[in-house]
Simulated scan of single mutants.
Amino acid sequence: MKWGKYTTIVGLTFLLFISIITFSSYNQLNTIKSTLLHMQEAVQSNVSENTNESAEDTEEKNSISNHVENNVDGNGNRSIDNSIENNIDSNGENEIDNNIKNNIEVNVDVSISNNIKNNVKSNEQENSSTDSEKSSSSNNNSNKNSENQNNNDEKKNEKQQNFPELVWGVDSASVTTEEMCACVEENFGTPSVWGRYLGTKEDVSKGISKEEAQLIHNKGAKVLLIFNHFTEAIGYEKGKTEANEAIRLAENLGVPEDVAIFADIEPSYPVDSAFINGWYDVISASPYKPGIYGIFDSEKALVTAFNAAAKNNENIKKNTYIWTAAPNIGVTTEANAPEYKPESPEGSLTAGWQYGIDAKACNIDTNLFKGEILKVLW
């Protein structure tokens, strides 16, 4: 009995020892499993991050480096999946370095899968076409800049010239052609100034083109630019809006700097000083010079509005070119032009007088201008 008692105690002790070992191993395996799960999440997160950062769309040299290291030490089944995908849309040189290092020290089965995929797309042919277009655009801009530079040089030379006291000219809402030039020369004279409109206004006037301007220049005349795309001249913002549109049209034609643009304020249009202030502020801040056309009869609303605008800004009277249609004494030939006696606001920069309108032949009006206006004409 005594020996049996000892045997029982030893057996129970052994069972207790085995239980402790088993429980400890179980906890260790759970710890390793948890560690591996966290590691797998970290690896997947790292791979996902590398995938996003490796997607490039650039024309410069690309250098991509992906490094993934897995350190596993423990007991149990292991499954590790490393996936790297690099998507590159590039025209430049690419360098890709994918490095995966797995350090495994376990006493069980391990399954490892490393997948690397590089997708590289080149747009060299497409970019070749784009570069060609850029080159063409660059050449066009270069030619345009050269043309504008030549025009500006001509304007500078004109400023140094001695102009005649007065010059005769015409203006017309019709397109200038060889036939029209011949009509004017045969019936009226040889104009030094030819007034034409910026942009077409439906059923009112045809806009001038570059080719037409060149024809006028070839005939020895300068172009006086008229802007008439409004029917009321009310409000400061309205004045600014119309001025910006006039500038846009002039720039599209390649009109050089320091050329005057005349706002056409017809006698039937309502007008106030705010419009004139807006027109002046925008045009005077641009490469161009502000001008106004209208019937500057002392009893007209235009004169009242102009004087009020000049009171708000004294530079308006000094720097705005006035082309007045008052008084109207009728169309004449160049040889029979009247004595220069225009009506305009006192102290204003009066540059021209449209003394006769609606000629029966050639669809023109006749004008006299101070010779110095030639320096602000195109």
Rank of each mutant, 00 (worst) to 15 (best):
N218A: 03
G220K: 04
V170C: 03
K210L: 08
W194E: 03
K219Q: 10
T231Q: 14
D171V: 06
E185A: 15
L166I: 12
T177K: 07
G189C: 11
Y236E: 15
V204K: 11
K219C: 11
A213V: 06
E237R: 02
V193S: 05
I216L: 09
L224Y: 07
D171F: 02
G235V: 01
G199F: 04
R196Q: 12
E237F: 02
I208F: 08
V193N: 01
A213R: 13
E212H: 05
W194I: 09
W168A: 10
W194D: 02
V193A: 04
F230N: 12
E237G: 01
M180R: 15
N218Y: 01
K201G: 03
H229R: 13
R196W: 07
K238V: 05
C181K: 06
V175D: 07
H217V: 07
F188T: 11
I216T: 08
T231C: 08
M180N: 09
L166W: 05
Q214Y: 04
N228C: 07
E178I: 02
L225F: 15
M180I: 08
I226H: 05
M180F: 02
S172D: 10
F230P: 11
S209R: 00
N244C: 04
T190D: 13
C183I: 01
E186M: 11
G239E: 06
E185T: 13
L225Q: 07
T176M: 15
A233M: 10
V167Q: 04
A182Q: 10
I226N: 04
V175G: 02
H229G: 05
K201T: 12
A221L: 11
F163N: 03
E202N: 15
A221M: 13
K238C: 06
G239W: 02
A221Q: 08
K222Y: 10
I208T: 12
T176P: 01
V170F: 02
K222S: 14
E178P: 00
K240F: 01
S209N: 02
V193P: 04
T200Y: 00
D203E: 13
E202P: 05
V204T: 12
L166G: 08
G189T: 12
K210A: 12
T241A: 14
K238G: 06
C183D: 10
E165D: 13
G235E: 03
K240W: 02
K222H: 13
A243G: 10
E186K: 15
A213D: 03
V204C: 06
G189A: 11
Y236R: 11
D171G: 04
C183N: 11
N244H: 11
R196C: 06
H217N: 15
E242L: 09
E245Y: 11
N228S: 14
D203H: 14
E211M: 00
S205N: 08
I216W: 08
A233T: 12
N244T: 14
K219P: 01
C183K: 09
E178D: 03
K206V: 15
I208C: 07
F163I: 00
G207I: 13
P191R: 01
G207D: 12
T241Y: 08
N228E: 14
V184T: 09
C183R: 04
P191C: 03
G235T: 01
M180Y: 01
R196P: 04
K238F: 03
L215P: 10
L225P: 00
V223G: 03
